[in-house]
Design a protein around this nucleic acid. Structure first.
Lengths: 128, 128
DNA sequence: CAGCATCCCTGAAGATACTG
DNA sequence: CAGTATCTTCAGGGATGCTG
Protein backbone atom coordinates (compact mmCIF):
# COMPACT_ATOMS: atom_id res chain seq x y z
CA UNK A 1 0.00 0.00 0.00
CA UNK A 2 1.45 3.26 -1.14
CA UNK A 3 0.57 6.21 1.07
CA UNK A 4 3.31 8.72 0.45
CA UNK A 5 1.47 11.63 1.90
CA UNK A 6 -1.33 9.73 3.55
CA UNK A 7 -3.99 11.12 1.23
CA UNK A 8 -7.16 9.23 0.58
CA UNK A 9 -6.59 9.87 -3.10
CA UNK A 10 -3.50 7.71 -2.89
CA UNK A 11 -5.41 4.89 -1.32
CA UNK A 12 -7.71 4.92 -4.32
CA UNK A 13 -4.76 5.13 -6.66
CA UNK A 14 -3.05 2.23 -5.00
CA UNK A 15 -6.09 0.08 -5.67
CA UNK A 16 -7.19 1.20 -9.12
CA UNK A 17 -4.19 3.14 -10.34
CA UNK A 18 -1.87 2.18 -13.14
CA UNK A 19 -2.20 1.88 -16.87
CA UNK A 20 -4.61 -0.98 -17.13
CA UNK A 21 -6.69 -1.29 -13.99
CA UNK A 22 -9.10 1.54 -14.72
CA UNK A 23 -9.69 0.17 -18.19
CA UNK A 24 -10.23 -3.36 -16.99
CA UNK A 25 -12.60 -2.18 -14.30
CA UNK A 26 -14.38 -0.08 -16.81
CA UNK A 27 -15.07 -3.06 -18.99
CA UNK A 28 -16.28 -5.01 -16.00
CA UNK A 29 -18.85 -2.36 -15.13
CA UNK A 30 -20.70 -3.93 -17.97
CA UNK A 31 -21.05 -7.19 -16.16
CA UNK A 32 -18.94 -10.30 -15.83
CA UNK A 33 -16.54 -11.15 -18.58
CA UNK A 34 -14.31 -14.03 -19.54
CA UNK A 35 -10.57 -13.73 -19.75
CA UNK A 36 -10.56 -13.87 -23.51
CA UNK A 37 -13.34 -11.31 -23.77
CA UNK A 38 -11.35 -8.82 -21.78
CA UNK A 39 -8.30 -9.68 -23.79
CA UNK A 40 -10.08 -8.92 -27.02
CA UNK A 41 -11.98 -5.87 -25.87
CA UNK A 42 -8.99 -4.16 -24.36
CA UNK A 43 -6.85 -3.52 -27.37
CA UNK A 44 -3.14 -3.76 -26.80
CA UNK A 45 -2.96 -5.49 -23.46
CA UNK A 46 -0.87 -8.64 -23.22
CA UNK A 47 -2.17 -11.77 -21.54
CA UNK A 48 0.54 -11.43 -18.98
CA UNK A 49 -0.53 -7.94 -18.02
CA UNK A 50 -4.16 -8.87 -17.99
CA UNK A 51 -3.46 -11.76 -15.67
CA UNK A 52 -1.28 -9.71 -13.36
CA UNK A 53 -3.69 -6.84 -13.09
CA UNK A 54 -6.65 -9.11 -12.54
CA UNK A 55 -4.80 -10.88 -9.75
CA UNK A 56 -4.05 -7.62 -8.03
CA UNK A 57 -7.63 -6.49 -8.33
CA UNK A 58 -8.74 -9.83 -6.99
CA UNK A 59 -6.46 -9.51 -4.01
CA UNK A 60 -7.77 -6.05 -3.27
CA UNK A 61 -11.27 -7.51 -3.20
CA UNK A 62 -12.36 -5.55 -6.25
CA UNK A 63 -13.00 -8.38 -8.65
CA UNK A 64 -14.11 -11.93 -8.21
CA UNK A 65 -12.68 -14.80 -10.18
CA UNK A 66 -14.87 -17.76 -10.97
CA UNK A 67 -13.38 -20.93 -12.37
CA UNK A 68 -15.79 -23.25 -14.10
CA UNK A 69 -14.64 -26.85 -13.91
CA UNK A 70 -15.21 -27.60 -17.54
CA UNK A 71 -13.39 -28.56 -20.67
CA UNK A 72 -12.41 -26.30 -22.26
CA UNK A 73 -11.62 -24.29 -19.12
CA UNK A 74 -13.63 -21.18 -18.49
CA UNK A 75 -12.95 -18.40 -16.05
CA UNK A 76 -14.88 -15.26 -15.64
CA UNK A 77 -14.35 -12.09 -13.76
CA UNK A 78 -16.88 -9.83 -12.15
CA UNK A 79 -16.84 -6.84 -9.87
CA UNK A 80 -17.49 -7.59 -6.23
CA UNK A 81 -19.81 -5.42 -4.20
CA UNK A 82 -16.80 -3.38 -3.24
CA UNK A 83 -15.78 -3.14 -6.86
CA UNK A 84 -19.18 -1.74 -7.73
CA UNK A 85 -18.54 1.18 -5.44
CA UNK A 86 -15.84 2.33 -7.82
CA UNK A 87 -18.44 3.05 -10.43
CA UNK A 88 -18.78 6.76 -9.61
CA UNK A 89 -15.03 7.24 -9.90
CA UNK A 90 -14.83 5.39 -13.20
CA UNK A 91 -17.83 7.19 -14.63
CA UNK A 92 -16.50 10.55 -13.54
CA UNK A 93 -13.26 9.77 -15.32
CA UNK A 94 -14.98 8.67 -18.45
CA UNK A 95 -17.23 11.69 -18.47
CA UNK A 96 -14.33 14.07 -18.07
CA UNK A 97 -12.37 12.32 -20.77
CA UNK A 98 -15.24 12.53 -23.21
CA UNK A 99 -15.78 16.19 -22.59
CA UNK A 100 -12.09 16.97 -22.79
CA UNK A 101 -11.70 15.06 -26.02
CA UNK A 102 -14.70 16.75 -27.53
CA UNK A 103 -13.80 20.27 -26.50
CA UNK A 104 -10.05 20.26 -26.56
CA UNK A 105 -8.88 17.53 -28.87
CA UNK A 106 -11.46 17.90 -31.59
CA UNK A 107 -11.44 14.17 -32.06
CA UNK A 108 -14.44 11.97 -32.43
CA UNK A 109 -15.86 10.32 -29.37
CA UNK A 110 -14.78 6.98 -28.01
CA UNK A 111 -15.67 3.83 -29.93
CA UNK A 112 -18.76 1.85 -29.14
CA UNK A 113 -17.20 -0.58 -26.71
CA UNK A 114 -16.31 2.32 -24.50
CA UNK A 115 -19.32 4.49 -24.90
CA UNK A 116 -21.41 1.57 -23.80
CA UNK A 117 -24.42 2.08 -21.62
CA UNK A 118 -22.55 2.16 -18.38
CA UNK A 119 -24.81 4.74 -16.84
CA UNK A 120 -27.59 2.20 -16.97
CA UNK A 121 -25.27 -0.70 -16.21
CA UNK A 122 -25.15 -2.48 -12.91
CA UNK A 123 -26.82 -0.47 -10.16
CA UNK A 124 -24.77 0.49 -7.14
CA UNK A 125 -25.16 -1.86 -4.26
CA UNK A 126 -23.35 0.08 -1.61
CA UNK A 127 -23.24 3.78 -2.22
CA UNK A 128 -20.89 3.79 0.79
CA UNK B 1 -1.64 11.17 -25.83
CA UNK B 2 -2.13 7.58 -24.92
CA UNK B 3 -5.27 6.01 -26.36
CA UNK B 4 -4.51 2.32 -26.47
CA UNK B 5 -8.09 1.25 -26.71
CA UNK B 6 -9.61 4.60 -27.47
CA UNK B 7 -11.43 4.83 -24.16
CA UNK B 8 -12.35 8.14 -22.67
CA UNK B 9 -10.99 6.87 -19.39
CA UNK B 10 -7.56 6.80 -20.96
CA UNK B 11 -7.84 10.37 -22.08
CA UNK B 12 -8.45 11.35 -18.48
CA UNK B 13 -5.60 9.16 -17.34
CA UNK B 14 -3.25 10.70 -19.86
CA UNK B 15 -3.97 14.10 -18.40
CA UNK B 16 -4.20 13.44 -14.68
CA UNK B 17 -2.70 9.98 -14.40
CA UNK B 18 0.56 9.06 -12.78
CA UNK B 19 1.85 9.00 -9.26
CA UNK B 20 1.87 12.68 -8.46
CA UNK B 21 -0.59 14.54 -10.65
CA UNK B 22 -3.74 13.60 -8.77
CA UNK B 23 -2.11 14.59 -5.50
CA UNK B 24 -0.87 17.89 -6.85
CA UNK B 25 -4.25 18.66 -8.34
CA UNK B 26 -5.87 17.72 -5.12
CA UNK B 27 -3.84 20.23 -3.21
CA UNK B 28 -4.64 22.87 -5.79
CA UNK B 29 -8.36 22.36 -5.33
CA UNK B 30 -7.76 24.35 -2.21
CA UNK B 31 -6.76 27.40 -4.16
CA UNK B 32 -3.52 28.70 -5.62
CA UNK B 33 -0.29 27.64 -4.05
CA UNK B 34 3.38 28.52 -4.30
CA UNK B 35 5.98 26.05 -5.43
CA UNK B 36 7.41 25.68 -1.97
CA UNK B 37 3.99 25.24 -0.42
CA UNK B 38 3.25 22.31 -2.69
CA UNK B 39 6.71 20.96 -2.03
CA UNK B 40 6.14 21.01 1.70
CA UNK B 41 2.55 19.82 1.70
CA UNK B 42 3.17 16.89 -0.58
CA UNK B 43 5.44 14.77 1.50
CA UNK B 44 8.06 12.85 -0.39
CA UNK B 45 7.99 14.52 -3.78
CA UNK B 46 11.26 15.84 -5.13
CA UNK B 47 11.57 19.31 -6.59
CA UNK B 48 12.40 17.77 -9.89
CA UNK B 49 9.21 15.71 -9.96
CA UNK B 50 7.12 18.59 -8.79
CA UNK B 51 8.50 20.79 -11.56
CA UNK B 52 8.03 18.16 -14.22
CA UNK B 53 4.49 17.31 -13.24
CA UNK B 54 3.49 20.93 -12.96
CA UNK B 55 4.89 21.62 -16.41
CA UNK B 56 2.88 18.79 -17.90
CA UNK B 57 -0.27 19.94 -16.19
CA UNK B 58 0.40 23.44 -17.42
CA UNK B 59 0.80 22.22 -20.97
CA UNK B 60 -2.45 20.31 -20.76
CA UNK B 61 -4.15 23.53 -19.74
CA UNK B 62 -5.01 22.22 -16.30
CA UNK B 63 -2.93 24.56 -14.17
CA UNK B 64 -1.80 28.10 -14.61
CA UNK B 65 1.64 29.32 -13.65
CA UNK B 66 2.06 32.87 -12.48
CA UNK B 67 5.52 34.35 -12.10
CA UNK B 68 5.75 37.42 -9.91
CA UNK B 69 8.67 39.62 -10.91
CA UNK B 70 9.97 40.14 -7.42
CA UNK B 71 12.96 39.42 -5.24
CA UNK B 72 12.91 36.84 -3.86
CA UNK B 73 11.22 35.15 -6.82
CA UNK B 74 7.68 33.96 -6.35
CA UNK B 75 5.66 31.66 -8.53
CA UNK B 76 2.26 30.30 -7.86
CA UNK B 77 0.11 27.68 -9.41
CA UNK B 78 -3.63 27.55 -9.72
CA UNK B 79 -6.18 25.42 -11.48
CA UNK B 80 -7.50 26.84 -14.70
CA UNK B 81 -11.21 26.74 -15.47
CA UNK B 82 -10.57 23.46 -17.20
CA UNK B 83 -8.67 22.22 -14.20
CA UNK B 84 -11.63 22.98 -12.00
CA UNK B 85 -13.71 20.56 -13.99
CA UNK B 86 -11.58 17.76 -12.63
CA UNK B 87 -12.95 18.39 -9.18
CA UNK B 88 -15.67 15.73 -9.38
CA UNK B 89 -13.14 13.11 -10.39
CA UNK B 90 -10.73 14.06 -7.63
CA UNK B 91 -13.43 14.20 -5.01
CA UNK B 92 -14.84 10.87 -6.09
CA UNK B 93 -11.40 9.38 -5.71
CA UNK B 94 -10.88 10.86 -2.32
CA UNK B 95 -14.27 9.78 -1.13
CA UNK B 96 -13.72 6.23 -2.25
CA UNK B 97 -10.29 6.14 -0.67
CA UNK B 98 -11.63 7.34 2.63
CA UNK B 99 -14.39 4.81 2.71
CA UNK B 100 -12.11 2.00 1.65
CA UNK B 101 -9.53 2.91 4.27
CA UNK B 102 -12.17 3.13 6.95
CA UNK B 103 -13.96 -0.07 6.09
CA UNK B 104 -11.20 -2.28 4.80
CA UNK B 105 -7.92 -1.08 6.16
CA UNK B 106 -9.04 -0.21 9.67
CA UNK B 107 -6.69 2.73 9.66
CA UNK B 108 -7.49 6.21 10.79
CA UNK B 109 -8.67 8.71 8.26
CA UNK B 110 -6.42 10.92 6.18
CA UNK B 111 -4.47 13.70 7.91
CA UNK B 112 -5.78 17.21 8.07
CA UNK B 113 -4.03 18.54 5.00
CA UNK B 114 -5.92 16.00 2.96
CA UNK B 115 -9.26 16.03 4.67
CA UNK B 116 -9.40 19.73 4.00
CA UNK B 117 -12.70 21.33 3.15
CA UNK B 118 -12.57 20.55 -0.51
CA UNK B 119 -16.27 19.97 -0.79
CA UNK B 120 -16.77 23.62 -0.06
CA UNK B 121 -13.67 24.68 -1.94
CA UNK B 122 -13.71 26.52 -5.23
CA UNK B 123 -17.08 26.21 -6.98
CA UNK B 124 -17.20 24.62 -10.39
CA UNK B 125 -17.12 27.13 -13.19
CA UNK B 126 -17.89 24.81 -16.04
CA UNK B 127 -19.77 21.72 -15.06
CA UNK B 128 -19.11 20.73 -18.68
C1' DC C 1 -8.85 -21.56 -22.95
C1' DA C 2 -6.46 -19.40 -19.56
C1' DG C 3 -2.34 -18.58 -17.83
C1' DC C 4 2.57 -19.16 -16.18
C1' DA C 5 7.75 -18.75 -17.16
C1' DT C 6 11.50 -16.20 -19.07
C1' DC C 7 14.01 -12.69 -20.76
C1' DC C 8 14.35 -7.91 -21.97
C1' DC C 9 13.79 -3.02 -22.20
C1' DT C 10 12.10 1.58 -21.48
C1' DG C 11 10.75 5.34 -19.13
C1' DA C 12 9.04 7.02 -14.65
C1' DA C 13 10.81 8.32 -10.51
C1' DG C 14 14.64 9.16 -6.93
C1' DA C 15 19.19 11.34 -5.13
C1' DT C 16 22.14 14.91 -5.21
C1' DA C 17 24.26 19.06 -6.43
C1' DC C 18 24.21 23.47 -8.57
C1' DT C 19 22.09 28.39 -10.12
C1' DG C 20 19.47 32.84 -11.79
C1' DC D 1 12.85 30.82 -3.90
C1' DA D 2 12.19 28.19 -7.60
C1' DG D 3 13.94 25.85 -10.19
C1' DT D 4 18.06 22.94 -13.60
C1' DA D 5 21.32 19.42 -14.53
C1' DT D 6 23.07 14.71 -14.11
C1' DC D 7 23.26 10.31 -12.91
C1' DT D 8 21.09 6.14 -11.33
C1' DT D 9 17.69 2.87 -10.04
C1' DC D 10 13.84 -0.01 -10.62
C1' DA D 11 9.33 -1.45 -11.44
C1' DG D 12 5.92 -1.48 -15.19
C1' DG D 13 5.33 -3.45 -19.07
C1' DG D 14 6.41 -6.07 -23.74
C1' DA D 15 7.54 -10.51 -26.60
C1' DT D 16 7.53 -15.10 -26.96
C1' DG D 17 6.90 -19.81 -25.90
C1' DC D 18 5.01 -23.53 -23.09
C1' DT D 19 1.22 -26.17 -20.39
C1' DG D 20 -2.82 -28.03 -17.26
Amino acid sequence: MNRKSGCAVEVTLSVMGGTWKPIILFHLLHGKKRFSELDRQIGGITQRMLTLQLRELEEAGIVERTVHAEVPPRVDYALTALGQTLQPVLLAMRHWGETYAREHLQEDAAPAHCTMDTEAAVPLQRAA
